[in-house]
């Protein structure tokens, strides 16, 4: 199996000269498209991570919001017996632990998995084709193109969003989150030794809370766009989307190469 990306611009394969197929397709993918019009893109660990991650983030957002803006006071039992805020924070921290482990697992898989498993972690800055496709994708979203392209992995717009909101965004949430956690765990604790420096950097813990809180909104924004785009593309694009994240297979709705 070759993970080498096929670059029509650089390599002069006659048949693909006029191809508008995406730049991230490997030779093998292209073969596959013609034969089966279905590609195995997201391996099981990626899919598993995707859905666990989505669940954790949902929990983190809901609980995080209520940490910042608690529910109206309730009198269920005596203070020592009632633990509303405690449970909310517990859920937040539990989801945060899973999210953290998952994120490291996902990074591991970027090395171990297939080519597509890496896509989220970088932006191909020096690939001209990427930028052309990005412009094309923008035109598609602005209703300036009649027909979308086929992509095996993420389209360039998605890749950028994944990179900024997930790779960087989640890193930011992990760092600020653990720095906050370190404050409660106390000086000398493991989280403190790992992340205590962050508080030293921003100087004032209130600022840290604010940054973490703002980060949540960035992720909310990503979620809205991401889910909308996934469903829209599922309907309007030339390939499967939602089912891909379940089965791992990208199926194409037509056999045209371009």
């Amino acid at each position: 199996m070759s993970d080498k990306i096929f670059h029509p611009a650089r390599e002069s394969h006659e048949i693909f000269k006029a191809s508008r197929l995406t730049g991230d397709a490997t030779l093998e993918d292209l073969d596959s498209i013609r034969k089966r019009t279905s590609v195995y893109v997201y391996e099981a660990p990626v899919r598993l991570w995707h859905w666990i991650n989505a669940a954790c983030i949902t929990v983190l957002i809901v609980t995080g919001y209520f940490i910042g803006r608690p529910l109206p006071s309730m009198q269920i039992a005596e203070a020592y017996d009632q633990f509303v805020m405690g449970y909310i924070r517990f859920a937040h921290f539990a989801a945060a632990q899973v999210l953290t482990v998952g994120f490291f697992g996902r990074i591991y898989w970027a090395f171990m998995g297939n080519h597509h498993a890496k896509q989220m972690f970088y932006i191909p800055l020096f690939n001209r084709r990427f930028w052309h496709e990005l412009i094309f994708e923008l035109r598609w979203y602005f209703f300036l193109e009649r027909e979308p392209k086929k992509y095996v992995g993420h389209n360039p717009l998605a890749q950028i969003a994944m990179f900024f909101f997930m790779t960087l965004g989640l890193t930011f949430m992990l760092i600020t989150g653990w720095a906050l956690y370190a404050e409660g765990a106390g000086q000398g604790s493991l989280p403190d030794m790992a992340m205590g420096w962050v508080l030293g950097l921003v100087q004032n813990s209130q600022r840290l809370h604010t940054l973490h809180h703002l980060g949540m909104w960035a992720i909310v924004v990503f979620m809205i766009i991401h889910i909308y785009a996934a469903i829209r593309e599922d309907i309007m694009s030339r390939q499967s989307m939602v089912s891909t994240m379940i089965s791992g297979h990208r199926t194409f709705k037509d056999d045209r190469v371009e």
């Binding site: 960035a218 809205i224 766009i225």
Partner: peptide
């Protein structure tokens, strides 16, 4: 932070709705 976040989320949500309608 909440004002900024809600405004951003609201704006994006609105844009998505419009986009969906046009789509």
């Amino acid at each position: 932070a909440d004002k900024i976040g809600m405004t951003a989320a609201g704006a994006v949500g609105g844009a998505v709705a419009v986009h969906a309608a046009i789509s």
